[in-house]
Nucleic acid binder design. Structure first.
Length: 266
DNA sequence: AGTACCACCTGACGGC
DNA sequence: TGCCGTCAGGTGGTAC
């Protein structure tokens, strides 16, 4: 699930629930999801300390820790989320997959849920020690149109779908939002970056920022997307939200299930 | 360089 | 109800 807007929402959630409270215990039933440090050391480093403000880079959440240089780095994989609740409250729904739990002294706990165990957790002084962060492209909401046009030029042989999916090209966009952006910009996901004319490129830039900004305002993972978006229609046989006479197409592009309107998207 | 394919892991869902 | 195939919003390695 979690792409840039989702992680942005998790960041807000984390910052309003989990800051400035002493960590009393850390539990995990899948300790190997904590990488590059043995779980015992991970726990020992954090116990008795407090979380400071979290920031986001691409699909990563990066949390400062009181008094130590290391940061807690959370990646959510495809099925991750956070949940802050009273200790011992029933673990239903997503909380059944709470593989890492931070228990605070105030009686609450933060659950890092990860059904498919494709997410990962780190405790690193330099987030750049992770290749993916080191090589990550710029933040799509922080670049100018000019910089975006330069990116398209540098990766001109990629399909537009592949362009958005590659974290080394641009950060934080995954399968869902890639499709949404191209749908709004009315661009066929197969199109090579270099085949777009200037007007189309500008439109993709504008829609990219619009989609990511609007989606970031929603509260994930339970966000309700407007019906006019492509996202709520990602199912076989669904109609194009812009024209109910058009049937959406599902096709594997750059290895991922992609949905688009073969008529609206040129 | 770009993409295809497989792997990781485990559940949800639809068909029979 | 139960079994089975298919699919799932991410990333990384290998192979062409």
């Amino acid at each position: 699930m979690p792409e840039l807007p989702d992680v942005e929402s998790f960041k807000r959630y984390f910052n309003r629930t989990s800051l400035g409270q002493e960590i009393a215990d850390i539990q995990s039933d899948a300790k190997s999801l904590v990488k590059k440090i043995v779980f015992g050391d991970f726990k020992q480093k954090l116990l008795g300390r407090q979380f400071r403000k979290a920031s986001r880079r691409g699909k990563f959440l990066i949390v400062k820790i009181e008094n130590i240089p290391q940061k807690l780095i959370l990646h959510f994989g495809m099925t991750g989320s956070l949940h802050y609740v009273k200790q011992g409250s029933p673990r239903k729904d997503r909380d059944r997959f709470a593989h890492l739990i931070f228990k605070f002294k105030n009686g609450y706990e933060l659950r890092w849920n990860n059904q498919r165990k494709l997410g990962k957790v780190y405790l690193l002084e330099n987030p750049e020690d992770l290749d993916l962060i080191q090589e990550m492209g710029p933040e799509p909401l922080e670049i100018s149109k000019k910089e975006f046009l330069k990116l398209l030029k540098e990766h001109s042989r990629k399909s537009m779908k592949g362009f958005f999916l590659d974290q080394r090209v641009i950060a934080g966009i995954g399968n869902i939002y890639s499709d949404e952006i191209l749908f709004r910009a009315k661009i066929d996901p197969h199109r090579k970056a270099k085949s777009l004319d200037l007007k189309e490129k500008k439109k993709v830039f504008k829609k990219m920022q619009k989609v990511l900004k609007e989606a970031s305002k929603l509260n994930h993972p339970d966000a309700q997307f407007p019906d006019s978006w492509l996202i709520p229609h990602r199912r076989k046989g669904e109609k194009c939200p812009q024209n109910k006479n058009h049937e959406l197409k599902r096709e594997i592009i750059v290895g991922r299930a992609s949905y688009f309107c073969p008529i609206c998207q040129k």
